[in-house]
């Protein structure tokens, strides 16, 4: 890790498991209700960053589900591919962070398009559950291959020099890279929302979601749109992976660790609305961060508990249409 000791929050940059083990040790030092503001803001920042990844991933899932009616179980694996792609580019070709931010998502999106053409397109007419099973199979193949090659441990990916260091905000220290991740993902989320809800292309997409046959009758190539949409969703996951690479280590398991949480986020938000998945992603990240401050033991399960409560009170999800 490049950033180190004095920065609150930086030492939680390891995997969630490790940081939880640390927290348990620290517990005695943080008396309840006397939480130092530094720790509070540090955890909130960390939560916001997790939320940024939840938002980007659940956004991609929602876009794909809207048009393909498939829950892309391989989304976590594709997020991991994005991170590994950046790592390969750096270590094999010497390509730095900024070009990787563009190249890796495009490369992984092309891979996604190949997957769609080779496998997914055969099962659109079947029960939706087959899509889940197929992409689950693809996910464990991809993850298995990387685990065979790189084991379960992570590969470090350093923060680009332009984004190292911290800003002193007065009430807390903000590592610049973390600020960048939050800003970048907010821009990406807004861009996707704008593209889908406010442009002509997005209008076609929404129309095809409602009634593909009719849209095709108007002369729009719906199968190509389906392919490109899948590629776009996969690219979004890969972009999240590249952004995550310097924060979490690049590891074959990083995808499966996060995807189940993202599924819970999707259940909470409902996949009916783009804005809904963005908002619930960020919000649940914050909830998780807050839980880490007040009751660290529950931080890994709090999102699932929220999901259970939402299921009880509003079974269709907070922003969902009845499913």
């Amino acid at each position: 890790m490049v950033e180190s000791a004095p920065v609150i929050g930086a030492d939680h940059a390891l995997t969630p498991t490790l940081s939880r083990k640390r927290k348990r040790g620290d517990e005695r030092m943080i008396p309840l209700l006397h939480i130092p503001p530094q720790a509070l803001f540090g955890q909130l920042l960390l939560g916001l960053i997790n939320g940024a990844f939840y938002a980007m991933l659940s956004l991609g899932l929602a876009v794909i589900f809207g048009l393909l009616n498939i829950i892309n179980f391989a989304h976590g694996a594709q997020y991991m591919l994005g991170a590994f792609c950046a790592w390969f580019l750096l270590n094999l070709a010497g390509v730095g962070y900024w070009p990787s931010l563009v190249i890796a998502p495009i490369a992984v999106a092309l891979f996604g398009i190949v997957l769609e053409r080779a496998f997914l397109r055969w099962i659109y007419r079947l029960d939706h559950l087959y899509g889940l099973l197929l992409t689950f199979g693809l996910a464990i193949i991809i993850e298995g291959l990387f685990r065979q090659q790189y084991g379960s441990s992570g590969q470090p990916y350093s923060i680009p020099p332009e984004l190292t260091g911290v800003w002193n905000l007065g009430f807390m220290f903000l590592p610049i890279y973390r600020g960048w991740v939050i800003a970048a993902s907010a821009v990406v989320c807004f861009g996707t929302w704008f593209l889908i809800e406010r442009t002509r292309l997005g209008a076609y997409l929404r129309a095809a979601t409602e009634n593909p046959v009719l849209v095709q009758a108007f002369g729009i190539n719906v199968p190509r749109m389906v392919t490109l949409t899948y590629g776009f969703g996969v690219g979004l996951a890969a972009l999240a992976g590249v952004l995550a690479a310097p924060i979490y280590q690049v590891s074959p398991l990083m995808g499966s660790n996060i995807i189940i949480v993202v599924f819970a986020v999707v259940v909470i938000g409902g996949m009916g609305s783009i804005l809904g998945s963005i908002v619930s992603g960020f919000a649940l990240g914050l909830v998780e961060g807050l839980t880490k401050v007040f009751y660290p033991e529950a931080s890994s399960t709090v999102i699932f508990v929220v999901m259970a409560i939402v299921l009880l009170l509003k079974p269709a999800g907070l922003f969902g249409r009845a499913a």
């Binding site: 197929l134 199979g137 693809l138 996910a139 193949i141 991809i142």
Partner: peptide
Amino acid sequence: FGSWVTIIQGVIFVLCVL
């Protein structure tokens, strides 16, 4: 063969569904 078990399981998944 380590991770190959998972990989082959994945392949069987894909073949079965398709």
